[in-house]
Structure formats: C-alpha cells, structure tokens
C-alpha cells in the first residue's frame, strides 16, 4: 500500500501541490491523470524519493519514504522519470543490468543475468540488447529504461509517462505488459499517462489531479464519466461505447 498524508510541495509563492492525502491499495495499475501542471509528476517523484516534500509523510509498503535508507527502499520501490541524462557509453543490456544494482551492488550473478534477460524480453528488445543507447530511437530508449526498472524487481513501480515516445504498437504492448506484471506478479504499479483512454482501458484505478490536488480517485469505470473528465480537463469530453468498453472523445 502507498500511503500519503498531508504531502505538500510548493514552487515559489503561487504554485503549491497538496496537501495530498491518498491511499493506493496493493496490486493493480493506478493511473495518475490530469492537465499539464496539475502536479502528477511531482507527486510521483516525491513518492519515489527523488524530491523531498515540504511537509507530510509518504509510506510505501510499510517503509517510510525519507526515513528508510535509500538502499533498502531501492529493493521495494523503483521509479522512472521522463528525462534521463547519461554520459557513459552503455548498451541496452548493460543499462538493464544496472537495475540489479540494489540487489548485487554491481556484481552480476547468473540469476541476475536471467532477471535482465527476462526484463529485456518483456519489453521486446531481445534483438537490440547489444546496441548502444545512443544508437536507439527515443521510444526504444524509453523501453530500455522501463526494462531496467523491471529488472530491479521491486514490488512497487512508479513510472512517469512510460508511453512517452512510444508508437501505437509499443504503447499497447507496454500497457499490456504492465497490466500483466500487476495481475500475474502482484506488482503495484503507478503511472502517469496523458492518454485518458489508455488509462481507462488498462488501469484498475484512476487518480485525477488538478491544480495540485486530487479531485477524483476510484475504480477506472467510476472516473471515466463525461462530467468528471470534463471537469478535470476543462474540456468538453463525451463518452461513447467502444467495442472494448467506454471511450472518451474530446476532438
């Protein structure tokens, strides 16, 4: 369970996020949605201890974020941000191998190699595993980073826009994979997504944010309504019945 209590963060005088109180139950995929600047990424980043909240407490699976040593936390929760700047020359496989660092401190054993292989196959990059990261497209690199997070093998996964840069096929595949990881391996996955229909179809729960606060949190079907989405995004949204469930139409 991820538990946030009174979490606040301010940027300057005007922009404030929170106070946020939220309890995300174990298991399943939770999607954070909302307009730009609503504070989704900030909230996710604070959960992943990459950013210190100004006030409040965050707990993941019983471990206090900020009080638990980073080393231990790295075996419980993994986080992936959008931009990742690196300078070293790495192959896909070497990058994914770094995901094992919290468990191995850098010495890869055969079983770690298996974890790495599985993560790479999971994101469909077997054929590209010996390519250098600077020889990949943005979407391929994104998948490599997701594979690294998967190789970290943590119960909680926080992903900031994992669908960024991905084409249609890989977006669908990524969401299916994440859903499968949640359903079959019992992982708890929190993602920030912009495509509301991806959220509606693949996520178990949706958490809608606006102006730094949580305005709606519940099962995906409950949030995917005309009124709620229109209110959250300040844009007229209509719901239509698609072949595989409800679809939001906003264009």
């Amino acid at each position: 369970m991820i538990k946030l209590q009174g979490v606040c963060k301010s940027y300057g005088d005007e922009v404030t996020i929170g106070p946020v109180d939220l309890e995300i139950p174990r298991g399943g995929v939770t999607a954070l949605v909302g307009p730009n600047g609503a504070g989704k990424s900030t909230l996710l980043t604070m959960m992943g201890r990459l950013l210190k909240p100004d006030a409040g407490s965050i707990e993941i699976g019983g471990h206090g974020v900020g009080t638990t040593p980073s080393k231990e936390l790295a075996r419980v929760v993994s986080i992936l941000r959008q931009e990742n700047h690196f300078i070293t020359r790495l192959t896909v496989r070497q990058l994914v191998g770094f995901g094992r660092f919290p468990h191995t401190k850098g010495r890869l054993k055969p079983e770690d190699e298996e974890h790495v292989s599985r993560a790479i196959d999971f994101v469909d990059m077997h054929g590209l595993e010996h390519r250098y990261l600077d020889e990949l497209s943005g979407g391929q690199r994104q998948r490599a980073y997701v594979a690294m997070v998967l190789a970290q093998d943590t119960e909680y996964l926080l992903l900031d826009e994992p669908l960024n840069n991905l084409d249609l096929r890989h977006s669908v595949q990524m969401m299916k994979h994440l859903k499968r990881a949640a359903d079959e391996l019992g992982r708890t996955i929190v993602i920030v997504v912009h495509d509301i229909n991806f959220a509606g179809h693949y996520a178990d729960r949706i958490c809608a944010m606006k102006d730094g606060r949580i305005v709606e949190f519940g099962p995906a079907d409950d949030v995917m309504t005309r009124d709620t989405l229109t209110r959250v995004f300040d844009t007229p949204v209509q719901m239509v019945e698609g072949p595989n469930g409800k679809l939001a139409v906003y264009y």
Binding site: L50, S70, K71, A74, I79, F86, T88, F98, G99, K105
Partner: peptide, 20 residues
C-alpha cells in the same frame, strides 16, 4: 568505482537505484 558507474547514470536514476 561500482558506485561511480551508477552515479554516471544521473541523479534520478542513481537515487532510484539506492545510491545516496
């Protein structure tokens, strides 16, 4: 050097991997 290898991945990634 093993830690430096991780630090080279940048602040966010290395923090996520448990490096202070």
């Amino acid at each position: 050097s093993r830690r430096l290898n991780v630090v080279a991945l940048g602040r966010n990634v290395s923090t996520a991997l448990g490096i202070r």
